Amino acid sequence: MSLEEILEEEDLGIEILHPGGLEITRELAELCGINEKSKVLDVACGTGETACFLAETFGCEVVGIDVSPVMIEKAKKKAKMRGLEGRTTFILADAHELPFPDNTFDVVISECTLCLLNKEVALKEMVRVVKPNGCVGIHDVAWRGNAPEKLKLKLKEIEGEEPKTPDEWRRLFEKASLIDVVVLDKSHLIPEWMKEIRKEVGFWGEVKIFLKILRKEGLKGLKNAWESMKIFESPYTGYVIVVGRKPAK
């Protein structure tokens, strides 16, 4: 059971589900050249926190898509509360089949999600809907050094995640016909993020998560959650920003 699935059923007060918080979002936005004239697509927008932040900070227009109806409703409510309905739109959609014409957006981003998807298909769609000379950017989990194969298989089994090494992320972007690809190592953010999550959730939040996993998946689920945490705390697990540009026609 993923943290996002738990958030759909329990209100734990967590709005950002990735290392680096809104600071890494800002850095990604700046690398992608987002400004007040930009039309941005946020793939797997979650609760809409990033979309609202970008609209408020850069004055851009943001469309968020997510496969979860619960997350889309949360995002719409958040945008309304913050007076951003005119600059944000949230749509229920699959990242593997984006419901937009070719060359629609100036920038397409996705935060800490591509490692859960069919990367080639999702990235191809992101490239398809961005305009020529527009940027596609992500930040996501990356394997560091010579990560043991058993560690990779265990994370895939538990969380369904298949991170790439920094070089593999670069090659994936280049294979998708993106140019001027930049890869930045942000691995130092993971331990900081895990501490922050524990702080935000608090003792009773941890109890709720514990009981939810126990009720849904039993002791095996608790064991998996513990193993997953250990993987993210291991020296083999890192984090990267990756940005590429779609060539001009």
Rank of each mutant, 00 (worst) to 15 (best):
E200I: 15
V141N: 01
L92Q: 12
K37E: 10
K78F: 11
I72M: 05
E161W: 05
E97L: 12
K39Q: 06
L184Q: 07
L84I: 08
K175Y: 10
E227Y: 12
F173S: 03
D102E: 11
V182Q: 12
E85D: 12
E56G: 10
D11H: 07
C60F: 13
E125I: 06
M1H: 14
P166Q: 03
I209F: 13
I24K: 02
K80D: 13
F232L: 11
T25L: 10
V107Y: 04
E233P: 05
E200K: 15
L114T: 04
Y239W: 04
E27G: 00
K223N: 06
E168R: 08
L116T: 02
V130L: 14
L7I: 02
E30C: 12
E162N: 01
V121Q: 01
K119V: 01
E120I: 02
E149I: 10
N146T: 09
G20V: 03
A29N: 12
L151W: 07
K195M: 11
V136F: 05
D180T: 05
L222N: 06
E23A: 14
K216L: 14
G145F: 06
P163T: 05
D167I: 14
E120C: 01
S2N: 14
R198W: 02
P132M: 11
K249M: 13
E174H: 09
G21L: 05
G218V: 07
V108W: 08
L151F: 11
M71K: 07
L22M: 14
R87C: 02
H96V: 00
C32L: 02
I91N: 07
L114Y: 05
S234T: 10
W226R: 14
K119N: 00
G218D: 13
I241L: 04
T89I: 08
R87M: 10
I213L: 14
